[in-house]
């Protein structure tokens, strides 16, 4: 776990779409090692999703100012040429979205969408090879019948299946960094557990670093190696998962942990 995949330094975002500038993220510093799962937890509006979108390069360029650095394998994503950034997106950095219902193109067959990253970044890969890899990944995400799913349209699949398709599509290019932004929020608990297990498995097998963003502390605890707690655009506390959950230093973290619903059976 020596290699640093991602390093965010003094990162901030300021919106300029109203009369007064609005700071939504400020002084965010963290790093992510190879094969590590870093959980970012925080309430709505704490800036966790904005940070994720910025790392993915999906923030609009207009109407907001970004500061600091986002170093991916030592190169700054924020000052990088557009073309270079595009060659990283989908190939080295990929993302799973919150809503599996809308994150897939309704008019495209699932197989096509899983292959998309390969088609764009590796045109040298033949069609058969592409299909083979797509099917392999559909199998990896525990589809019972990859061939059928490959030919299916998204509306023929359940929410959990679609989210697994998203994971397959995100992983098909063997990225170094996988960003999961609230990727289990729209799913029910049993499916959540399956997705979490899947992500852990993929993380183990492929040594992909995962940035796992959620407001659900118990999920964060299950999946993460290290945790960042964010509030109002600032990092409140960061540390190993055990340290954060067993010996929280900050008041806010203590409150959050105390607020985890306990189910007594």
């Amino acid at each position: 776990m020596a290699e640093t995949i991602l390093e965010v330094k003094d990162f901030g975002i300021e919106f300029h779409d109203h009369d007064r500038p609005e700071r939504v993220v400020e002084h965010v510093d963290f790093s992510l090692q190879k094969g590590e799962i870093l959980g970012i937890v925080g309430e709505s509006g704490s800036g966790k999703s904005m940070t994720a979108l910025a790392i993915a390069g999906l923030l609009p360029r207009k109407k907001l100012r970004k500061e600091g650095q986002i170093l991916f394998l030592g190169e700054d994503l924020m000052t990088m040429e557009r073309k270079k950034l595009r060659s990283l997106q989908g190939d080295e950095i990929s993302m799973i979205f919150q809503e599996p219902m809308t994150a897939l193109n309704p008019t495209m067959r699932v197989g096509m969408q899983v292959e998309e990253a390969l088609r764009i970044h590796h045109p040298e890969v033949s069609a058969e090879e592409r299909k083979r890899r797509a099917l392999a990944w559909l199998k990896n995400v525990e589809m019972d019948d990859p061939e059928r799913v490959y030919e299916a349209y998204p509306h023929e699949l359940s929410g959990g299946m679609r989210q697994r398709v998203m994971i397959a599509a995100a992983m098909v290019g063997n990225p170094q960094l996988l960003i999961a932004d609230e990727c289990t929020t729209a799913l029910d608990v049993t499916v959540q557990a399956q997705i979490i297990r899947l992500l852990l498995e993929i993380n183990q097998k492929e040594q992909v670093s995962v940035l796992f963003i959620s407001h659900d502390l118990s999920l964060i605890r299950q999946i993460s190696h290290r945790v960042i707690v964010m509030q109002l655009g600032h990092i409140v506390e960061q540390g190993d998962v055990e340290q954060i959950f067993n010996a929280p230093q900050e008041e806010y973290t203590k409150h959050l942990i105390a607020a985890i619903p306990q189910v007594v059976l």
Binding site: A56, R86, Q89, I93, F97, T102, N105, T107, M108
Partner: peptide
């Protein structure tokens, strides 16, 4: 919509997004 964002993140260019991803919809 998310699917456009998702395709953009996969590195799809503007033309590809406009004609391959969005147009059929």
């Amino acid at each position: 919509l998310d699917y456009v964002q998702s395709a953009r993140l996969m590195g799809a260019g503007h033309l590809r997004l406009i004609f391959v991803h969005i147009l059929p919809n």
